[in-house]
């Protein structure tokens, strides 16, 4: 266990190092920080003096080291637009994105497993054929189009659900949540469906094909020969083996999920990190871009570690300490 954590920590360091390098080079290349701070009216000599004072003329490594030291303390500079520490601005929006992801994940979990299992057990039923047909259509519709269609249908057309923003939210400590009010939950419905729209058919197909493969295995035939009940064979013997590759793919999909939050938040004007990031790109708000990259990097590291831990718990042949057996 300790060895696993150490190895994980090492990987995290590498990932964060790469991100910090990228971030730092963006900071260096995107526009001129001086212009953002003092405007055009200052003379060249004064500029040079200011550059020296700020250390912008120091060698690369010195500057990078200074950037790292500040970054570790959580100081990524102030956002040009908001005039506030960039990290604070991003973290304020973190709960909104997180709740969107939770909503989508719940939809995926509670639909893909039962549907995928059903389709594997009943390969010839009409429902399976319908699901397989729908899933290939679902995979072919981009997330932002699903989002637009949902808005057009349920907001503009039927007027049932709100089309943008988070609605009424409640503060719990630093966490701004939409889970506690009816309005907040209503606002969450369409964005969550949109965010889950491509992953859901993907997972249904994955679970179905993995489960069908597992059902052909000798240990499943042996389980039948032992006279066990169907539910026990399907939902314990087969499902537990099916979930192993699904967990792995789920880990890989986390990155895609985060990318899709940018799309979903843009369409629904959901005040989350992705929406903020795109605005920052358009405004060339470098510190904010950097802060976003670093927060996303941390999320990657944490979620991938969690996925590994879960995988290790489900699969006894993997020892967390020694890698794959």
């Amino acid at each position: 266990m300790i060895a696993f954590l150490v190895r994980r920590f090492g990987q995290a360091l590498v990932v964060m190092f790469v991100i910090s390098l990228i971030s730092f080079s963006i900071q260096d290349n995107l526009g001129d920080p001086l212009r953002e701070m003092v405007g055009q009216s200052v003379s060249e000599a004064e500029r040079q003096a200011l550059r020296d004072e700020m250390g912008l003329n120091d060698p690369f490594l010195v500057q990078y080291w200074r950037f790292l030291k500040k970054a570790v303390r959580g100081d990524l500079g102030d956002s040009y637009f908001f005039k506030k520490p960039a990290l604070d601005v991003i973290l304020e929006k973190f709960p909104a994105t997180m709740e969107l992801v939770i909503g989508a994940t719940l939809i995926i979990l509670f639909l893909s497993i039962p549907i995928g299992v059903y389709c594997a057990i009943n390969p010839r039923s009409w429902f399976t054929k319908l699901m397989m047909g729908m899933s290939i259509v679902g995979i072919s519709i981009p997330v932002f189009l699903t989002a637009i269609m949902l808005i057009y249908l349920f907001s503009i057309g039927l007027g049932w659900l709100p089309s943008f923003g988070r609605g009424e939210t409640t503060m719990i400590g630093f966490w701004e949540t939409g889970f506690l009010t009816r309005d907040g939950l209503l606002h969450l419905i369409l964005p969550s469906i949109a965010l889950s729209s491509i992953m859901l058919p993907l997972f249904i197909r994955l679970i179905r094909s993995e489960m069908m493969e597992v059902l052909e295995q000798d240990y499943i035939r042996f389980a039948w020969a032992k006279g066990l009940s169907r539910t026990r064979i399907w939902f314990l013997h087969a499902l537990k083996n099916t979930l192993l590759p699904v967990i792995t793919v789920g880990g890989v999909q986390i990155g895609t999920m985060i990318a899709y939050t940018i799309l979903t938040e843009t369409v629904f004007q959901w005040p989350g990190m992705g929406f903020l990031f795109l605005e920052a790109v358009n405004r060339v708000d470098t510190p904010l871009i950097i802060a976003y990259l670093i927060v996303v990097g941390v999320i990657f590291v944490i979620t991938n570690t969690l996925v590994d831990l879960i995988y290790g718990l489900v699969n006894p042949t993997v020892r967390l300490a020694g890698g794959q057996a």
């Binding site: 880990g251 890989v252 999909q253 986390i254 990155g255 895609t256 985060i258 990318a259 899709y260 940018i262 996303v296 990657f300 991938n304």
Partner: peptide, 10 residues
């Protein structure tokens, strides 16, 4: 792969 194409591209 874990960073996803779309994220890297964005």
């Amino acid at each position: 792969l874990s960073f996803s194409t779309l994220m890297v591209a964005i």
